[in-house]
């Protein structure tokens, strides 16, 4: 390879000014992303710091049943005399955890299925028909069926929601992977003799996941709502473990007398969903090239 030691006389071309971390900067500067992030960070901290209230979320003091919000119990107490603030904070741990894990699992598995279907065309028909099958049931019914079969535990809620939200993610990744696999840099790798697996992992997967990232924030929010719905229907996380859904479910019979039992976990759910949606909007604006401004 001696012939390559020769230098071309042309002076090295000057480079444009550095443009690193453009994405990060756009993201951090994005208004709705900021608000969403702040909301989520606050909720997460609240969940982590739940023990600071110094109250056992399951300790029942029948004497203190249905106390309205006051200095001692800012969110009031429920039918068993438990502190609603403490239960909402502990519930955040369960609800946010379920949302996070479902988003992560359905995202990762969905990405793998999608990219496999796009890269190995022989698998495509099979994988996509399975996804179509799952998609043809309403997500909440599917989840209801799975939790009913597996027993009402947190793990089954997670499995159920993951299965329910998996197909959408897989379809999303497959669609963008089908575009990416025809791009010139993938052809360049094929010309150089790269194996399909290498192309999939090195080029197609990293370049197909940005729509999925946005999707995952929405799945996070849907999962929190779906967990609440499942718990409300009695197949979700079982008492005495607190989740936002089952606090509301327990409060529903006394909704007129003790409105605070349902209001505060309801607010928490709305705040979390709002925060995640804002976060997702911000991510979409920054990641979607079609929405970028000129130059």
């Amino acid at each position: 390879m001696t012939e390559l030691a020769l230098a071309v006389p042309a002076a090295p071309a000057a480079l444009a000014p550095r443009r690193r971390f453009r994405l990060m900067r756009r993201l951090v500067g994005h208004r709705s992303f900021q608000i969403g992030l702040v909301l989520l960070v606050l909720l997460t901290f609240a969940a982590i710091l739940a023990p600071l209230t110094g109250i056992d979320p399951s300790s029942m003091k029948v004497r203190l049943r249905f106390r309205p919000p006051s200095q001692a119990f800012p969110f009031g107490t429920d039918g068993f005399g438990r502190d609603v603030l403490t239960r909402v904070l502990y519930g955040a741990r369960v609800s946010l955890w379920i949302g996070f894990v479902v988003a992560l699992l359905s995202g990762v598995i969905g990405a793998l299925i999608g990219v496999l279907a796009a890269q190995f065309r022989s698998l495509d028909a099979l994988l996509m028909r399975i996804m179509d099958g799952l998609m043809s049931f309403p997500a909440i019914l599917l989840a209801l069926g799975i939790t009913a079969a597996l027993g009402p535990r947190m793990e089954s809620v997670i499995i159920a929601l993951t299965v329910a939200y998996l197909p959408a993610g897989a379809r999303l990744v497959r669609a963008s992977a089908l575009v990416v696999r025809e791009l010139d840099y993938v052809l360049a790798a094929r010309i150089a003799g790269a194996s399909p697996l290498r192309i999939m992992l090195r080029h197609i997967l990293p370049n197909s996941v940005s729509p999925l990232l946005v999707h995952m924030t929405f799945v996070f929010a849907y999962s929190i709502l779906a967990e609440a719905a499942l718990s409300f229907l009695g197949v979700g996380v079982q008492p005495p473990t607190a989740s936002w859904g089952n606090i509301i479910a327990e409060g529903r019979d006394y909704a007129t007398e003790a409105w605070w039992v349902m209001l505060f976990p309801g607010l928490a759910i709305s705040l979390a969903a709002l925060g995640l949606n804002l976060l997702g909007d911000g991510l979409r604006d920054v990641l979607d090239p079609r929405l970028k401004g000129p130059g």
Binding site: L6, V8, A13, L15, A16, R20
Partner: peptide, 23 residues
Amino acid sequence: LLELVGLPRDSADRFPHEFSGGQ
């Protein structure tokens, strides 16, 4: 190779979007 095509050696650590079409 970078030298051969007339680009600065430190280009290797940069990302494509930092370069113009010709580069």
